[in-house]
Nucleic acid binder design. Structure first.
Length: 180
DNA sequence: AGATTGATAAGG
DNA sequence: CTTATCAATCTT
């Protein structure tokens, strides 16, 4: 039986992605579709922070695609990767500064492209305000999950200094299996 | 290790 | 317009 929590408010999202990424582990990602609310506990996240982070989409500046990263915290960023996978991010921090948290896994589904498929998240949900949206939001039910940090994956194009940062956070229950 | 897949951004 | 690139996943 999945619990129901309290919706995260603007003040929560206004903090830095470096703080939010580990904190979002254990929170409930909520999606209302066809009148039914799906709730999945977040098990894995990655932090993308500033134009100086060469792994971050905003590292090449503001474009039509990345402008959402500069919006205020609490906004969703959904984009298509490899022509087939919708990836879901939570924009964080203050308006004007690009930072976001990629949701890489939820309980039972590991992989950023899988959770969006099961939760029916696609690019139509880009730029949703998750503090007011009735389609997509995050709740906190007080559940605490121990987690560990690791290097980010899938960012071979980034500079080495950015590939080395421990900006990936994984719940200890470890549903996610690193690719070996 | 290779195929898939299409939006995105940069270049002519 | 053309081309290369990609926060992945699946099958071999």
């Amino acid at each position: 039986m999945m619990t129901v929590g309290k919706r995260l408010e603007r003040d929560y999202y206004k903090r830095s992605a470096t703080v939010l990424a580990p904190d979002l582990i254990g929170k409930l990602l909520c999606r209302k579709v066809d009148g039914q609310v799906l709730r999945y506990r977040i098990t894995e996240t990655e932090c993308y922070y500033s134009e100086q982070d060469t792994a971050c989409h905003a590292s090449k500046g503001k474009t039509e695609r990345t402008k959402v990263l500069y919006m205020q915290g609490g906004t969703s960023y959904v984009y298509l990767c490899y022509g087939m996978h919708s990836l879901f991010n939570v924009v964080t921090g203050e308006e004007g500064f690009p930072e976001a948290v990629l949701i890489r896994g939820v309980e039972g589904y590991n992989g950023p492209g899988k959770l969006t498929k099961v939760m029916k998240i696609d690019r139509s949900l880009n730029e949703e305000d998750m503090t007011t949206s009735d389609k997509l939001w995050i709740e906190d039910d007080g559940y605490q999950v121990a987690h560990r940090a690791d290097k980010r994956v899938g960012i071979d194009y980034a500079e080495e200094k950015d590939r080395e940062i421990l900006w990936r956070f994984i719940a200890d229950d470890g549903i996610y299996k690193p690719v070996k």
